[in-house]
Design a protein around this nucleic acid. Structure first.
Length: 932
DNA sequence: CCTGTCACG
DNA sequence: GACGTACGTGACAGGG
């Protein structure tokens, strides 16, 4: 069928692709022969991403990449200085030009050029032909010269910003419609192409004049009428030059072409052509990725003879070798290591202990590394081997320095302000040493460096980092400790084995630091690392060691009450089912509900079991008793097992308090995670669950004070997406959800109903999460079409939100990460994936800057807090994302609230000037339920 | 060890 | 035209 109505032609400006690729990438060379290849690599990546993105109803039916050919065109006949000021093509780009043609053909995309014609003219000709045939055209370029073609089904797409430019976009840029763009350009000229235009007249003035006179010709004919003398004279004197400029910028829609639109039909790539090409270029990642997607075996790409090119930038390091490590057994040797650290000015430190819980684990040994490859282990508390003896020995193993002697030598070094201590997860070691009276400072943390540079890309544990960046798999701890029931603690490990493992850890840490330190700067995250990551170590270590008092009796009483209620419910459930079964087994429950009782709506998950989640049961509960009872039972079961029972296990035997551990690198967005136990998910939403918080109490004579940011994420959204109505509402202290509802549903605020407000609230939150019609529909339990209607209305009312979402997605697609207002990078490696994963990644990308900025803000508040409340009888205990919990001596609560509120509300200053104020609510009470 | 479920912001 | 979708976490129980 000939090109016509219903067809959609994409025209890609090939030169633009090449130059962008060239400038976006470092000067890569082909490993085998050093051929410059960066631009081709970037070009192929862009083509591939382009092809990947071509799904959906808007996908093109026809496509071509258009290139310039030859430097002499008809425009040089008109004006010999045309494009004369262009810089010569960079030497390393020239040989890549023909390869981009080959690449285009390898992707099986039509590749067109014509001697003596600019790509723009070919694009213009094809666009005109396609438009005349009744089809649609998208020109993928940001070249403003092409804007004259827009209109009547022709649009431009700025692939860089992922922004479509239609007629309105052109008017925004040039102040006139596409048909008058050439007139404006003729007047304004173009310094890039060396088009002279009218001196002293830019786009703004040109648009003004053209709009007033209707056309360039009219303007020039009536130039005498212009009031401004200088402008009038210019137009009269420069008439010839202006008219010539117009001929220069006017695209030629009549380029003679040896092919027609039908030759441009979209074709699938042929793996037999594409894969060999990519392999020949030695694009390892891209070859593999595309092979995976095409479902073919990736061709082998031989490794370059040397790895020199790759490691040139990386510091030189000797290979890891355990035989070089020493075991320190006497004071003299230890002192010599400390002296080495002193001389160096930095030292990697790692502690070995009897467990993972810093509040209960005991120090077993310390290792130091002063240089990659030079590491030692100082065993301190290894137990003598029990040998065949069944009775474990409490005696210390031979050949260890006295514990306190060693610490006395190490302490000055660990506290020496002129020696940088380098650790991997320093919070752990700092807490272990703090319990022994040692304050480690100053320090660097390779885990946090990795998090600052690679957050969202991968985990930041030592094994991961070592494998990824050192190409070395450290000795697994399991080989020393065993696993499961027979697992032993580190103090039972023979010293020789322990030394190899421990010293290697310090060595690996030192190597990672050597590698990461210069990279932090290159990745432009030094400030994030130094102001948002590293200072958290001390703040959190102190909070964790403080712990929060938990009243065991309260929990225990609740536990018993829950057990009784659950027993009653269980009996009822069995009665209703007509048989006994394990209510806690989703599998058995599903079979009872859908097989035995024959209820409708059973859906099986991937394991073949029926889904019995709360949403499913809630639907069934309107008609049936049993699922309703199961829901009640489940709630109690959760509260009992996770909270009233498990929390008691976490009460420290000496402090009587619960000491959580925060994972600084736990969440990709910059939020903290809380583990062992998780104190960030203590119930609050239901009355019954909320009572768990009554067990979190203040010490006698003290009070708990809670401060939390009000609507911080919505405020950040208002700022980032620049939504005037939202910002104003926050300034006016309005009920933000009611305001949204009022705007969307045209309901005056004084006639607002709780239900309408509830819907608006769901939409507000949905926006933060990267809303979808489906998600909102499910949340509100309304038809999907209705939910979509709400969203459309919302975007219509707050168009900045839609822009924010599109801009953020485009940024992520281009850069592979998004950023918070404070510069934290959150990587989005899946953003260019195919299938449902792309959707996930896009929504995560939309959410990350908002959630991440809020996380940055509370981090800043926490870091400033200790100095701010210095002297006040108050301790910061917990953080729950937007809340800080303090324990304060009675009578000092209000002073603490004043201070802490100031710190929290001003936490963005002075780095970020928010358009919205941050507001903090405060409460106090004998327990957490009262305080919140 | 994985899956389903559910607690929080 | 169908599919599958709200963002970020951690803990527990069941089951292979």
């Amino acid at each position: 069928m000939a090109f016509g109505k219903g067809h959609h032609l994409h025209l890609i400006d090939g030169s633009a692709f090449i130059f962008r690729a060239y400038h976006a990438l470092p000067p890569l060379t082909r490993k085998s022969d050093g051929l410059p290849i960066g631009a081709v690599a970037g070009f192929c990546n862009m083509l591939h991403r382009y092809v990947e993105g071509n799904t959906g109803p808007d996908a093109p039916t026809h496509v071509a990449v258009i290139f310039d050919k030859g430097s002499h065109t008809f425009r040089n006949e008109i004006y010999d200085q045309y494009k004369a000021n262009r810089e010569a093509m960079p030497e390393d780009l020239r040989p890549q030009i023909p390869l981009t043609r080959t690449a285009t053909e390898a992707f099986n995309i039509a590749c067109k050029e014509k001697e003596g014609f600019e790509a723009d003219d070919i694009i213009a000709t094809l666009a005109c032909q396609a438009r005349d045939a009744g089809g649609r055209v998208t020109i993928i370029s940001s070249d403003k010269d092409l804007m004259q073609l827009v209109g009547d089904g022709v649009e431009m797409l700025d692939a860089m910003k992922n922004r479509r430019i239609d007629r309105d976009g052109v008017i925004e840029k040039f102040g006139v419609g596409p048909e008058r763009v050439v007139d404006v350009q003729a007047l304004a000229g173009d310094s890039v192409d060396n088009v002279p235009g009218a001196p002293g007249i830019g786009i703004k003035t040109a648009a003004l004049l053209i709009n007033e006179y209707g056309s360039l010709e009219e303007l020039l004919d009536r130039a005498e009428e212009i009031k401004q003398p200088k402008r009038r004279q210019t137009l009269i004197d420069m008439r010839d030059q202006i008219e010539m400029s117009k001929r220069l910028v006017q695209l030629d829609c009549e380029t003679p072409l040896e092919f027609n639109l039908d030759d441009l039909e979209v074709r699938d790539a042929d793996p037999d052509v594409l894969m060999p090409f990519l392999a020949e270029m030695e694009f390892r990642t891209l070859t593999k990725r595309i092979a995976d997607q095409l479902g073919v075996e990736p061709p082998a790409i031989p490794d370059a003879p040397t790895k020199a090119a790759e490691s040139a930038a990386a510091p030189e390091m000797p290979p890891l070798d355990a035989s070089n490590y020493t075991t320190v057994r006497d004071a003299e040797t230890l002192k010599s290591w400390v002296e080495k650290a002193q001389a160096r000015g930095y030292v990697a430190v790692d502690t070995e202990t009897t467990g993972l819980n810093e509040m209960t684990a005991d120090l077993v040994g310390v290792c130091l590394c002063v240089d990659p490859g030079k590491a030692c282990y100082v065993p301190l508390a290894h137990k003598a081997s029990a040998g065949d003896d069944l009775f474990a020995s409490d005696d210390l193993a031979e050949g260890q320095m006295p514990f306190n002697d060693a610490l006395a030598i190490l302490q000055p070094m660990l506290e020496d302000p002129s020696i940088l201590k380098i650790g991997q997860n320093m919070k752990y070691d700092a807490k272990i040493l703090a319990r022994l009276g040692i304050t480690v400072a100053p320090f660097d943390d390779t885990m946090l460096m990795s998090y600052a540079m690679h957050g969202g890309e991968h985990g930041h544990g030592m094994d991961t980092l070592s494998e990824r960046y050192l190409n070395h798999t450290p000795i697994p701890i399991k080989t020393l400790l065993g696993t499961g029931k027979s697992q032993i603690t580190f103090d039972k490990v023979p010293i020789d084995d322990a030394a190899k493992y421990a010293a290697e850890d310090a060595d690996v840490t030192m190597r990672l630091w050597t590698l990461f330190k210069p990279q932090l700067h290159q990745a432009q995250v030094t400030r994030v690392y130094e102001t948002l990551e590293r200072p958290m170590v001390k703040v959190l270590a102190d909070m964790e060691m403080s712990g929060v008092k938990v009243d065991r009796d309260v929990l225990s009483r609740m536990s018993n009450a829950f057990a009784q209620k659950m027993a009653g419910l269980e009996a009822e459930i069995h009665e209703l089912a007509g048989e006994t079964f394990n209510v806690g087994s989703p599998k058995q429950l599903g079979e009872i509900l859908f097989d035995k009782m024959g209820l409708e709506g059973g859906k099986r998950g991937k394991t073949g079991a029926y889904a019995t989640g709360a949403d499913v049961l809630e639907d069934l509960a309107t008609e049936h008793e049993l699922p309703a009872r199961v829901l009640d039972w489940r709630q109690l079961s959760k509260l009992k097992s996770t909270y009233t029972d498990a929390l008691q296990e976490h009460i420290h035997s000496e402090t009587g308090r619960v000491h959580t551990s925060y994972v600084i690198t736990g969440a990709s967005t910059g939020r903290l995670a809380s583990t062992d136990p998780n104190l960030q998910n203590i119930p609050i939403r239901t009355e019954e669950g909320r009572r768990i918080r009554e067990a979190f109490v203040a010490e006698t004579g003290k009070t708990l004070v809670s401060l939390d940011y009000s609507q911080i994420e919505l405020r950040i959204l208002a700022h980032i997406a620049d939504i005037p109505a939202l910002k104003q509402a926050f300034r006016d202290g309005l009920d933000i959800h009611a305001m949204t509802a009022s705007e969307m549903f045209d309901v005056p605020l004084d006639e607002m109903t709780p239900d309408i407000r509830r819907q608006a609230k769901a939409i507000n939150f949905g926006v933060i999460y990267g809303i979808s019609g489906f998600g909102l529909a499910r949340n509100l339990r309304i038809p999907r079409a209705e939910a979509q209607g709400f969203i459309d209305r919302y975007f219509e009312r707050f168009p900045g939100i839609k822009d924010y979402m599109n801009d953020t997605k485009a940024f992520a697609k281009e850069h592979g990460y998004v950023q918070t207002l404070f510069g934290r990078k959150i990587h989005t490696p899946e953003i260019n994936a195919k299938g449902p994963r792309a959707g996930f990644a896009q929504r995560a990308a939309i959410n990350a800057p908002i959630q991440g900025t809020a996380a940055d803000i509370i981090r800043r508040a926490m870091i400033r807090m200790p100095a701010a409340i210095e002297g006040q009888p108050a301790t910061m205990l917990l953080q729950v994302h937007d809340e800080l919990l303090f324990e304060v001596e009675n009578g000092a609560e209000d002073a603490l609230i004043d201070t802490a509120r100031d710190v929290m509300e001003g936490a963005a200053d002075p780095v970020v000037k928010l358009d919205v104020t941050l507001t903090v609510d405060a409460g106090k009470g004998q327990n957490w339920a009262e305080a919140h």
